[in-house]
């Protein structure tokens, strides 16, 4: 068989990708900003970095089930605790993933779950502390689209 050059293969691949990218759901995804969600969550207040750690795999073998764990530094007392943590997936058709609500009874502000990622993107975790301050962590997860769906 005649071997295609690497360039030819890439051109073919990107043509196909371009054709798929134009679908309306994708356009919708780009138009819905994660920013609005964040503003609603914080009430427009500024967000600092630090205090919160978000652990996710660098590469997800499948976007359907991506593990996540977050931890917020806090004494978790009645006066000083983490109220809630929102998880946002910027590149998903719906950016909102979940909001985790804690109380001082939680002991530690740490939780794990599994989430869906439609493509390679940034995942953002923002914590609201009982004193009204906000902290953010962000991590990029690469989602592999395998050759073998099956």
């Amino acid at each position: 068989m005649k071997d295609l050059s690497r360039r030819e293969v890439i051109v073919l691949g990107s043509t196909a990708a371009a054709a798929i990218m134009v679908s309306p759901t994708m356009a919708f995804a780009e138009a819905k900003p994660a920013k609005a969600l964040l503003e609603k969550f914080t009430g427009g207040k500024s967000i600092a970095t630090g205090k919160i750690k978000l652990e996710m795999p660098e590469i997800a073998e499948n976007g359907n089930t991506v593990p996540l764990t977050f931890t917020v530094e806090s004494p978790m007392t009645e006066k000083d605790y983490v109220k809630r943590v929102i998880i946002i997936a910027e590149g998903n058709p719906r950016a909102e993933v979940a909001t985790f609500n804690f109380s001082h009874l939680s002991g530690v502000a740490k939780a794990s779950s599994r989430m869906r990622l439609a493509k390679t993107q940034n995942v953002v975790a923002v914590a609201e502390l009982s004193d009204g301050t906000f902290y953010m962590a962000k991590t990029e997860v690469k989602v592999t689209i395998g050759g073998c769906g099956g």
Binding site: S103, L105, K110, S113, R116
Partner: peptide
């Protein structure tokens, strides 16, 4: 002690791990 408001991006067969004092 703990709750989650869930949207559609939480995986099928939802899993949660959390703590309590």
């Amino acid at each position: 002690i703990f709750s989650v408001d869930i949207d559609t991006a939480i995986s099928a067969n939802p899993f949660f791990q959390f703590s309590m004092k």
